[in-house]
Design a binder for these strands. Structure first.
Lengths: 315, 315
DNA sequence: ATGAGCCCATAAGGTGGGGTTATGGGTTCA
DNA sequence: TGAACCCATAACCCCACCTTATGGGCTCAT
């Protein structure tokens, strides 16, 4: 099934993305040039030689087919296009920083200063940002992250193997205290081409329950909330597809395989770009609280307290 | 490694980000493995050999210090950590796709099928997403982008050098028709350590006007709105810093140099992660419409109409 | 049970992108 | 007019990533 298959949508690029987008080093260099106003200065900050910076930037311009900086004997300024590209580059670099913060926590060992246990959705979409913020305040705080469902989070906390937990369930697990730090909403989404995207009337809960959906595997927090909410409407139909990760579910929904229900946090990007469309549902609000939790009676202190403070400005 | 350095204030990484984060090719490979469930299949899709994929993935795991996939004689599945990393990777890849879509439009020539002129904020934060969406619907539509202020956008449209424009001004430029496609709000932001971040009372407009801010250069749309809104409150004080790009302004604000006023679109990320804090302002709403515009009487058709349709689901 | 057809791993060898140092020419300013 | 910035070019080096060739484990149909 190598070539000539029909169903595959806009999948395999002829020339891969990695060849059309400069690598992270080049993007960081561009940001440094924008900030410092000189190739040499930027090179020094990034720890490379000035000719290396010069050639790197030049090949980036060639690759993009756009002049990015105006070089002069007394410095370099961004062109108009360069300013635009620089801001796009910053988005990529920020995503990479979140990746790095998350990965670092994931590899963190037991002796970390701060051990966090978090549910999947929170670990995926919120925690990396918090860790970046924490790093700017306390650069030397080593953080370890363990991701799992609510029960696993509670278990770790009660066993003394984690200092702070985050859960997205409907209630606080027994033995834990908690504080609501934000809210999450489940949204019904479909590809723009799907009939549901063009409905002019709201979906009824019963209709939703009766329709096969693309879902995460049984046991995911999202699915539990959905199950509970639709229990009174005939129960959830057998899934159209059952996939292992949010990523996979989104990809399937975008490609038009069918409608899905996902956290607002997960599909913000897709909705904004109209790769997915939200389908309003009558009456039912698939809302759930996001909570920080800790062993009952033991108020978070030290790094845990600081991280808790960072989480209070949620969307 | 990584232990040893003490006070380094998160500025220039000792070991650069590019060395701690796998490159785009590796991240795309990981996404393909997650989707297809097999190294060999993923390798084929990405157009490389199976050993290359195997070794690439292995070195990524080594770099991150985390096992990402469980290999078995009948395929590979993501580990729990791998699922998390894959979702973080997807964020990076999506940002890179936006970068690519934007860069491609920027290099687009005059003979493109669809010529767009857009103001800076829209070009920076919204257009790339729209272009990605457009590409999935009409892969063969070549788009060119020209970014400038409202006057420049109007000029291009009236000269017949652009098919569709986007502006964020307060009114529709003369000679053009338009439709509101969304709204943008200017927010006052400060670093979490700034006194304003801890205020319990709302800022007055007069107070804001009297305080030196970090701003874009004169002429930016953001600054015009701000000027107009504060004209009745003593006028804007001389800026604390005047920088050339939104990126630079944000960086300065995050580093604590002072308060700034920026589009909500530009600082969403920073607010969510608490790298910046919004400072409420009494009474005044710095709101502005986002509009699609076209020459009066000439309703958009063809690709322009299609793009217009994509923009109707704004935040 | 046995070969086909997947899966993945290891080994050995090529190539080019990105790095380096060395050098030179332009502008600004004390 | 020399010092101190800016940037560019040239010649060289290295390793990260690719390739092809090969082998072993699991599953399944014949």
């Amino acid at each position: 099934m190598g070539s000539g298959n029909a169903g595959q949508p806009a999948a395999d690029p002829v020339v891969p993305l990695a060849h059309r987008v400069p690598d992270l080093g080049a993007l960081e260099l561009l940001l440094a040039v924008a900030r410092l106003g000189s190739l040499g200065r930027a090179a020094r900050e990034r720890g490379i030689s000035q000719p290396a910076a010069s050639s790197r930037l030049r090949s980036m311009e060639q690759q993009l087919g756009v002049a990015l900086v105006e070089r002069s004997p007394r410095g370099s300024r961004l062109t108009d296009a360069g300013a635009l590209v620089t801001d796009w580059a910053r988005q990529v670099v920020e995503a990479a920083e979140a990746f790095d913060a998350g990965a670092q926590a994931l590899r963190g060992r037991r002796d970390s200063r701060l051990r966090v246990a978090a549910s999947m959705t929170i670990a995926e979409y919120l925690l990396p940002g918090w860790l970046i913020a924490l790093r700017t305040q306390r650069p030397d705080t080593a953080v370890s992250l363990l991701a799992g469902n609510s029960a696993a989070v509670a278990e770790r906390l009660l066993a003394g193997e984690a200092d702070l937990g985050f859960v997205e369930g409907l209630d606080v697990p027994a033995g834990l205290d908690g504080a609501v730090i934000g809210h999450d909403r489940l949204v019904v989404v479909a590809a723009p081409a799907h009939p549901w995207a063009r409905r002019r009337t709201e979906l009824t809960a019963a209709e939703l329950a009766a329709t096969p959906l693309i879902l995460r595997e049984r046991g995911s927090g999202t699915r539990q909330v959905l199950d509970a909410a639709l229990a009174g409407h005939g129960g959830l139909a057998a899934p159209l597809l059952e996939l292992a990760s949010t990523t996979a579910v989104k990809a399937a929904a975008v490609s038009g395989a069918g409608p899905s229900v996902l956290s607002e946090l997960a599909v913000g990007e897709e909705l904004a770009a109209r790769r997915l469309v939200e389908v309003p549902v009558l009456g039912t609000r698939f809302s759930r609280d996001l909570r920080a939790v800790w062993p009952a009676g033991q108020r978070p202190a030290g790094p845990a307290r600081q991280l808790l403070g960072l989480t209070r400005a949620l969307p």
